[in-house]
């Protein structure tokens, strides 16, 4: 079909083969598919149960979901679930709340004051990577074997990441907005409250997501040392008795705690960041 006729004069000629331009965009676009997430869970648990029932998965290797659920039901019936859960929740709520609040305050100080930044930022960077669980013996000496050391572990563990995300958030607030505030003669306090804090809030909230998970991890670790009650203590006990069904039940409770926390943060983001799309 290739000849030397100019294209312009032959644009609609019948002999030329015509076809639509193939679509090649798309992909890389995340679409919300609400049904898939629960479906994945259901399918995995169903396969796992099937494997246990048929003997493909030995009960010694992994207890079946129904056994684990049975262990959970026993825990519930004995009334110990609430004892464990309330002990854990109390520790995590106090530790996380105090740690995050202090972290936001110190993060704001580092973000807003050159003196605080010069003095505290290197300190934070130096202490942040230390696994707080390694300091637990020290915390026990300082704060006692009881609640103090466990709350302190969670508090320290959530404090440092919150500091870092908060001052990162403050640094990322649009300088032009701050200059605008100054040019209209707003007070320092107003600029912080109405421009810097809302501007840093997305970063602070995503920091909360991370510190929440860290809090759960540290909770279990702290409760494995010298705690009578708590989900971590329950899991440790189950582990030392090789009661794997109880162990799975305990781990599932932690997982649900994490999901609940993520849901709460998600609601907070929807509420506070409703100005975003």
């Amino acid at each position: 079909m290739a000849d030397t006729r100019p294209i312009s004069s032959q644009s609609q000629s019948a002999e030329e083969p015509a076809k639509t331009v193939p679509f090649r965009g798309g992909g890389f676009v995340v679409k919300p598919l609400g049904v898939i997430a629960p479906l994945v869970f259901v399918v995995i648990i169903a396969l796992w149960e099937l494997g246990s029932q048929t003997g493909f998965i030995s009960g010694l290797v992994l207890p079946s979901p129904s056994e684990s659920f049975e262990a959970f039901r026993q825990l519930f019936d004995s009334g110990l679930l609430f004892v464990h859960l309330s002990a854990s929740l109390q520790r995590i709520v106090i530790g996380w709340t105090v740690g995050s609040t202090l972290g936001i305050i110190v993060g704001l100080m580092i973000g807003l004051s050159s003196v605080a930044r010069a003095g505290l930022a290197p300190l934070v960077s130096a202490i942040f990577p230390i696994p707080k669980i390694a300091l637990l013996p020290l915390f026990i000496i300082w704060f006692g074997i009881g609640e103090g050391s466990k709350v302190a572990t969670i508090l320290f563990g959530t404090f440092f990441p919150t500091v870092i995300t908060t001052y990162g958030g403050v640094d990322n607030v649009d300088r032009n907005l701050i200059r605008m505030g100054q040019s209209f003669g707003l007070s320092w306090m107003s600029i912080v409250r109405k421009i810097i804090l809302p501007g840093a809030l997305p970063a602070i909230l995503s920091g909360c997501r991370i510190s929440g998970s860290i809090a759960i991890i540290l909770l279990v670790a702290a409760e494995m040392i010298g705690a009578e009650f708590g989900i971590g203590a329950y899991i440790l006990m189950a582990g030392s008795l090789f009661a794997t069904d109880q162990l799975i039940a305990g781990v599932a409770i932690l997982s649900v705690m994490g999901l609940c926390f993520a849901w709460v943060i998600g609601r907070a983001e929807k509420y506070f960041l409703n100005w975003r799309t």
């Binding site: 649009d174 032009n176 040019s183 975003r276």
Partner: peptide, 16 residues
């Protein structure tokens, strides 16, 4: 209220 008042190229509106 504010004798010298700016209008910026990038508008500088608070998105929130």
């Amino acid at each position: 209220l504010n004798p010298l008042t700016y209008i910026f190229q990038d508008f500088a509106l608070l998105p929130w």
